[in-house]
Design a protein around this nucleic acid. Structure first.
Length: 736
DNA sequence: TTAGGGTTAG
């Protein structure tokens, strides 16, 4: 504490100011600061401009969050000067909540006409505008910046960049950044962080590389903002390079950097590296613990995650809502049911805040358990619903096939005048894609355009997927071509779209174009192999499969093996397919034999089919599909007694099969047909059209496979064969 | 002027 007042009375004006400035610097609490001010006034020293500026500055350091501070201290001090200088005004402006800061800024010409706002005044006001949800104030500021010719200033430029990124206007943000004459570390950090927040991960990494190439210094913020991008891109090697740079620059031990590294390594599956880093931190804070717990959960190490949580409680740290969220497995299925319920119970028992963050995570976890009732209950009970919670519930409905609920909740959102976020759009589009609902998808696309929802890489990929699955491959291609940044997932979606439409050559062309730009993933290879299989490109498919491991180091999974058998089998190369099966790993058995059985059906190979079925009955005795398939193969090769016998076995084992269905959209209405369906109101017209089509097909040279052999069929079996395929009904309905 | 973990999407 400062000593008695008389010391100050003995000093000259300049000495007295220096004395108080030193005291203010050393103040360690708000109470202390007020005492210093009291002493000064009592000794007749009314704080001059520099002392007041220092007092307000120290106050904002001690009370960092302006919005939570209700203290009148800075205001009283500022108001005591009728004619503040620009320095005092800037410091005061900075400690105000955003709306007050902006009204102070707009009052400058009237109340302080002699003061001309400088780059600090404008930058601070821009930050205030960015924190408010209305962009108008920031746009007016930008207009003024342009008029005053201040766009090249690095403070102003960085604030502008950040402002536009906060409103998801990435291209304006990057333009503002490009105008900065000499961007410094903070300017580069701003642009990298903005790109990451707007999901442009590849661009963020490129900006980081450019920053270094141009000789800029990196700081702990740079490392902390670029790491989430490398984690999202699953680029372990690049992240390790960033790590090395951090070590060489002596930044590894910084709090933010350590957290970023733990999170990065665990998201890339390198738990041991994350553990070493976590253990090396001297005084780990709650965020470090949360990052490590989340890393365990993310990679499916549920037991480690729970042990670390127990240890956290034991160590006396109080978990927060992020800790609870970190415990809820969203991406892995292991132990989800148990955890979800016990965590829900724990949150209630420990009277932890069941805030929007925890509720949203619970909603997601329940929807992944296919328990939409519990998910909806958590959502309904939320006092304040966030955008994430709306999206979690909508996507939960979509992923559980409850499309009507998803759409109805989306309508609900719109009636509350809530603008859909890119996540909302992607979730709803995924529902449309599953349903094949083109009209609904187009409607969502219109809303995206009308409401100016940012077309980020997720939304564009969802649109590609939706258009491809709903049959409009040209529109999918158009969106794909217009994307400024393409990542692996959108390339995969486009290739997979080509596969579905039978465009094998186009899929291969895309694959070649892609692989010179970014490394393909296991999913890419699956899509390309599908495309080869559907396009009859056997040699090309074999070449791709070989290259997958030898050129790209990706181990083929069960699905890839099954796809290869499908490729060979469809092309009639059953011998080769059989040889290939022998080389497949054990976990691929179901898939490869299933694909082989499918090929036997196409080529009516009853003997080989029997062999495949025996394997499949062993592997999956309760799957009715294989019985149906084998029975159909026997029917096709006129072995009706065997066909009936197989059905008997299936019936005896009480294996019912879910009927497949076909969906068709006519004039924006979705119609569903199952095999032999007569429930449609226009059923007689449909059957008339079907007959007409059948005649035309026969005239065109079509040879019916089953209908021609009906004479040999027993009554019961005949009923089954006559049952009209759902796809045929849908097509007949569309034609009628 | 930038800033770590955690919820929602392809």
């Amino acid at each position: 504490m400062p000593g008695p007042v008389p010391i100050s009375a003995a000093l000259t004006g300049g000495e007295r100011r220096a004395f108080y400035l030193r005291l203010v610097d050393a103040a360690s609490s708000l109470f202390h600061l007020r005492q210093i001010l009291g002493h000064a006034i009592a000794s007749g020293h009314h704080p001059d401009l520099p002392t007041t500026t220092k007092l307000i500055h120290r106050h904002s350091e001690l009370v960092p969050s302006p919005s939570s501070s209700r203290s009148a201290f800075p205001l009283t001090l500022f108001s005591s000067h009728a004619q503040p200088d620009l320095f005092l005004l800037n410091v005061f402006l900075r400690c105000l909540p955003p709306n007050s800061a902006l009204s102070l800024f707009s009052s400058i010409p009237r109340r302080h006409p002699r003061l001309r706002p400088d780059s600090f005044t404008l930058s601070f006001s821009l930050s205030a505008a960015a924190s408010l949800s209305s962009p108008t104030a920031g746009l007016a500021l930008h207009a003024r910046i342009i008029v005053d010719g201040l766009s090249a200033d690095r403070f102003i430029g960085s604030a502008l960049t950040d402002f536009y990124f906060k409103f998801s206007q990435s291209s304006h943000a990057e333009k503002a950044f490009d105008q900065i004459l000499k961007p410094d570390t903070v300017s580069w950090n701003t642009v990298i962080s903005g790109l990451v927040r707007n999901c442009s991960f590849l661009r963020a990494v490129r900006a980081f590389v450019r920053m270094i190439t141009l000789g800029n210094r990196v700081d702990s913020t740079t490392i902390a903002v670029v790491l989430p991008a490398t984690a999202e891109l699953q680029d372990l090697v690049f992240g390790q390079t960033v790590h090395c740079l951090g070590v060489k620059s002596g930044l590894e031990a910084q709090l933010h950097v350590a957290t970023g590294l733990i999170s990065f390594y665990s998201k890339c599956g390198d738990i041991p590296a994350a553990e070493i880093l976590f253990e090396e931190i001297n005084h780990a804070d709650l965020i470090h613990w949360n990052a490590m717990i989340s890393g365990y959960t993310f990679t499916g190490c549920i037991m480690s995650s729970i042990s670390l949580f127990r240890y956290l409680l034991f160590s006396g740290l109080r978990p927060n809502s992020s800790t609870i969220v970190a415990l809820i497995p969203v991406k892995t299925p292991f132990g989800r049911e148990f955890l979800c319920k016990s965590i829900h119970g724990f949150v209630i028992r420990a009277r932890l805040d069941l805030n929007s963050l925890v509720s949203t995570a619970l909603t997601t976890a329940y929807s992944r358990l296919n328990d939409m009732e519990s998910a909806r209950k958590v959502f309904d009970e939320m006092p304040e619903k966030t955008m994430a919670s709306w999206n979690a519930t909508i996507s939960g409905y979509a992923q559980n096939g409850l499309t009507e609920h998803a759409v109805s909740l989306f309508h609900d959102m719109q009636s509350r005048m809530l603008k859909p976020s890119p996540v909302t759009a992607a979730s709803i589009l995924s529902a449309c894609a599953q349903l094949g609902a083109l009209a609904l998808g187009k409607w969502v696309h219109r809303i995206i355009t009308e409401e100016d929802v940012e077309l980020n890489v997720y939304v564009s990929t969802s649109l590609i997927d939706m258009y491809a699955k709903c049959g409009n491959i040209l529109e999918a291609q158009k969106i794909f071509d217009g994307m400024p940044e393409k990542n692996v997932v959108c390339w995969n979606a486009m290739i997979s779209g080509c596969a579905v439409h039978g465009y094998g050559r186009e899929a291969l062309r895309l694959f070649r174009e892609m692989s010179v730009q970014i490394p393909p993933t296991a999913t890419t290879f699956l899509s390309v192999l599908h495309a080869c299989s559907h396009g009859g490109l056997v040699r090309e498919g074999q070449e791709i499969f070989r290259s997958m491991f030898w050129d790209y180091g990706i181990q083929p999974l069960a699905e890839h093996h099954a796809c290869m058998v499908d490729l060979l089998g469809r092309a009639g190369q059953l011998e080769e397919a059989m040889e290939f099966i022998k080389t497949a790993p054990a976990d691929a058995s179901k898939g490869v034999w299933g694909a082989f059985l499918g090929a036997c059906r196409i080529h009516k190979e009853a003997t080989l089919a029997k062999l495949a079925s025996e394997k499949l009955f062993e592997l999956e005795p309760k799957n009715p599909g294989y019985y149906v398939l084998l029975s159909n193969i026997y029917s096709a090769s006129r072995n009706f007694s065997e066909a009936a016998a197989i059905r008997e076995v299936a019936n005896a084992r009480k294996l019912g099969k879910m009927p497949g269905c076909a969906l068709i959209e006519v004039e924006d209405v979705l119609h569903v047909f199952t095999a032999g369906d007569r429930s449609h109101p226009e059923t007689s017209a449909i059957h008339r059209m079907l007959d007409r089509l059948q005649c035309q097909m026969v005239e065109a040279g079509y040879q019916a496979e089953t209908e021609a052999v009906l004479d040999d069929v027993e009554d019961k079996e005949k009923e089954h064969v006559v049952e009209i395929h759902s796809d045929k009904l849908a097509i007949a309905f569309w034609s009628s």
